[in-house]
């Protein structure tokens, strides 16, 4: 049984988990799951991203373990408002909003590095531990290892050689976000070592979007005849990534650069290449030989909604079929799309 007071809550895939680990805490992602009643809309607004509303619902319902603090990232307007509302509904919680630039130009990296240094000071206060550069390097090493193992596991799922691959991969992603890293690493290693078992086919599909943590959603895709051959979701493969370990450069700058340069979600922009996200989707779909692309985004998510027309255009230009699904983080909402997914797969056959 984990020591609950050693947990730090987080809500966004851009959170520097290695710093939380270096402080002696375990990161705990407050996933938009469970069945807390809808209350957040009264404090925020109904017309706001259901990911954030459900996270707030969990906070209001006390449907979270005891936390020593919560780190919010300024990833979008709604996440900022979550930080505000959280303080209102849970005034006794330690919270910190970390400012997150939208691009990785040198000025933004320097700014973010200073924000990460501030976060480290705050975590140090919350834990009472002195967070030395060595501790941070060790934690970066641990999280790099996790990223590497998850990536290996993902490859097996993408190749279709792991039984019930995408369902189990999502389950592991959720565990990696909520349970101590050591335990999760063990589970991943065991799964990687399992003997190959080719999946029963299904049409290769590339899946991208933001929040889709329920493993059952992946069962649904498969039951509709799809096989997810690669995925890019903020509750999936975008959650972990390797950070450079060249110890001669400043650790915060390295972390900042690593986070801002990793596979981008729609909230991150490359100013040199406006609209790059659409090209990335095409490139990844081609790289995994997908026959079609499914985009899944939660409702009212401006960063994604605004980019979907360019994604659609870019895929059309390449002759790749595209299905866009909107949900509210519940299985009910994704289940309502079953017929559309089946028809999409049928059309691709």
């Amino acid at each position: 049984m984990k020591d609950k007071s050693k947990l730090i809550g987080f809500t966004c895939a851009y959170t520097p988990l290695a710093l939380i680990d270096a402080a002696g805490f375990a990161p705990y992602r407050i996933l938009p799951m469970g069945d807390s009643p809808d209350q957040a809309g009264h404090i925020l607004h109904e017309n706001l991203c259901p990911h954030v509303k459900r996270v707030l619902d969990r906070g209001m319902q006390d449907d979270i373990p005891e936390l020593s603090g919560i780190v919010f990232m300024n990833s979008c307007d709604t996440m900022r408002r979550l930080n505000d509302a959280w303080q209102k509904v849970r005034p006794n919680d330690n919270t910190l909003l970390v400012d997150l630039p939208v691009s990785n130009d040198p000025g933004s990296v320097s700014f973010f590095a200073e924000e990460l240094a501030l976060l480290t000071d705050t975590l140090s206060q919350w834990s009472g531990n002195n967070i030395t550069p060595e501790r941070i390097e060790n934690s970066i090493g641990r999280y790099n290892e996790l990223a590497m193992h998850l990536n290996e596991l993902k490859k097996r799922v993408d190749n279709g050689t792991l039984k019930d691959g995408s369902l189990r991969l999502q389950t592991i992603y959720n565990k990696a976000a909520t349970e101590p890293i050591k335990d999760v690493m063990e589970m991943i290693k065991q799964m990687i070592d399992e003997t190959n078992e080719l999946s029963d086919g299904g049409l290769p599909v590339y899946l991208f979007g933001n929040v889709l943590p329920d493993p059952e959603a992946f069962v649904l895709f498969e039951s509709c005849g799809a096989r997810i051959v690669s995925e890019d979701l903020c509750t999936g493969s975008r959650m972990t990534h390797s950070i450079e370990t060249d110890k001669s450069s400043d650790v915060f700058k390295r972390l900042a650069n690593g986070l801002l340069s990793r596979t981008a979600c729609a909230r991150t922009v490359d100013p040199i290449n406006p609209g790059k996200m659409a090209l990335d989707v095409v490139e990844r779909a081609n790289a995994c030989n997908a026959r079609g692309v499914i985009g899944h985004t939660v409702k009212f998510c401006d960063p994604y909604l605004a980019r979907m027309p360019s994604v659609r255009d870019a895929l059309k230009k390449e002759g790749i079929s595209f299905l866009l699904l909107e949900g509210d983080c519940t299985m009910r909402s994704i289940g309502q799309h079953k017929t559309r997914i089946e028809a999409f797969i049928e059309m691709l056959r």
Partner: peptide, 17 residues
């Protein structure tokens, strides 16, 4: 800029495209 809103930044990115 990301302020006042993420939607504004996205719209400007779309316009730039």
């Amino acid at each position: 800029a990301m302020s006042p809103c993420t939607g504004g930044l996205a719209a400007m990115e779309n316009l730039a495209r």
